[in-house]
């Protein structure tokens, strides 16, 4: 499964577990408008680390925190490439 589909799938599953209604997600959706709170994102990062084997937030000392869903996905896509390299 692609990184994109994995990220989007986990976002939907966590929103369901946390009983939060989630917005229609596209690349331009701002993370703060996504319906996920910081606990959801914390869980998302932990689950993605388990699934993809990377945690881009701790791989680099200075990362720009993503603002949109597209940036969030891109962060993981880059990290997955870096990890494979």
């Amino acid at each position: 499964m692609s990184v994109r589909l994995t990220v989007l799938g986990q976002m939907k599953q966590i929103a369901e577990e946390q009983q939060r209604s989630i917005a229609q997600l596209d690349d331009a959706t701002a993370l703060v408008e996504s319906g996920l709170d910081s606990l959801c994102f914390a869980i998302l990062v932990a689950r993605l680390e388990a699934e993809l084997g990377v945690d881009p937030f701790t791989m680099s000392e200075d990362i720009l925190f993503p603002v949109t869903v597209g940036e969030f996905i891109a962060l993981y896509e880059r990290a997955a490439v870096d990890e494979a390299a």
Binding site: S38, L39, A42, V45, A46, D55, F57, T58
Partner: peptide, 10 residues
């Protein structure tokens, strides 16, 4: 607790 970059710990 498990370290987490968003909430400090989970």
């Amino acid at each position: 607790g498990r370290r987490n970059p968003i909430t400090g710990a989970l």
